[in-house]
Design a protein around this nucleic acid. Sequence first.
DNA 1: ACTGTTATTGAGTGATCACTCAAGTTATAA
DNA 2: TTATAACTTGAGTGATCACTCAATAACAGT
Lengths: 201, 201
Amino acid sequence: MARHARYDRQTALAKAVALFWERGYHGSSMKQIEQALDMRPGSIYATFGSKDGLFSEALAAYAEQGSQELKTYLEPAESIIDGLEAYLRGIAQTGTQTQAKPSRACMIVKTLLESSNTHPALAEQANRILANIQQALCEALETAKARGELLASTDCHRLARLLQAQIVAIRSMAERDLAPDELSDLGADVASILESYRVRH
Amino acid sequence: MARHARYDRQTALAKAVALFWERGYHGSSMKQIEQALDMRPGSIYATFGSKDGLFSEALAAYAEQGSQELKTYLEPAESIIDGLEAYLRGIAQTGTQTQAKPSRACMIVKTLLESSNTHPALAEQANRILANIQQALCEALETAKARGELLASTDCHRLARLLQAQIVAIRSMAERDLAPDELSDLGADVASILESYRVRH
DNA sequence: ACTGTTATTGAGTGATCACTCAAGTTATAA
DNA sequence: TTATAACTTGAGTGATCACTCAATAACAGT
């Protein structure tokens, strides 16, 4: 019995992700948000409540899409470890492509580093997301271990932490102005770390 | 033939490092800078030119102090590789201590991620610093190789890049709210990566 | 066509942003 | 002691910050 919303929430959110990922929380002004979403302040506040609320939803959306990307590497792979190594090389390769994404670094890490001493609520959210990702990696590793891909002595929680550190490392180093082959070498070197945890045939 | 400066430049700079390291560029306002340095705006602008200028000098001072810290690990060590591994474990250990430093993450990486799409000049400076550190690591590795600590097949530039990625990783992960032993386990796991490049006895 | 409901608009809010500069203060040189 | 140069002060600058709300527009049901 009333007017339709002119804006699709998911579309607006995707645009917000692009802006915030590129410029960060403090680096994105409401003026820029209005322009990016093609929405007037009233509509933005009616839909998302506040700049904080919009950022928080954007970060959650980013995390969801990142977790889907990891799945696309793990599901088709015969070996989980192969899949993880392909993922590591893949994100190094992606960092190579100029302007393919809003930013080469991970938005979650950017948020964690930017907000840990300025915006506790956002830092907490970034922390939770990273803990969830580590848990997902851990479960993949547990499965790999059960399948006999990993050494029986492997501490999967610990390896998941190491693995997450490597993902963070690649994506942060990708923000440096390295040559494409330097970055893919790094991807290969990082991927090879997993080899020492692998059962040899 | 005139008045002395009331403020010591180095002391003021150290306070600026503490503030910017903690809160980042966009997260630190001139009001907070005035308070942290106990200087009025006129004096700050007379001494450092602008907020940008102050940040830039603070970042350079931070980098210098960081490079000194690395030296304290490398110089007393009999083996360079031992020294590097101790450094990696050391920064993981430091991240454990609550509130020991303004921030657990590296100010250079925080700056790179924060400013890459909002403040090109700062991003460029962070890039240059990271390139210099990588070069220093590379030289240490070359020496280690000449001493027979590293496999002759080692590509030192490439290993230096991997090593820098590990430093970035540990210090970024330190910003997560991990338990002290989780972080030191990560330090140990990261240090052990170097073992596969080492000459066995 | 009319009414009720909801969405959109954009000028405007006070607060805070980085920064300036005329006036005042403190030292040294003559 | 006096003149001059160097440094500090802090109220004030216009711009921009995140955000509000009364007015308007566009739909659904009758």
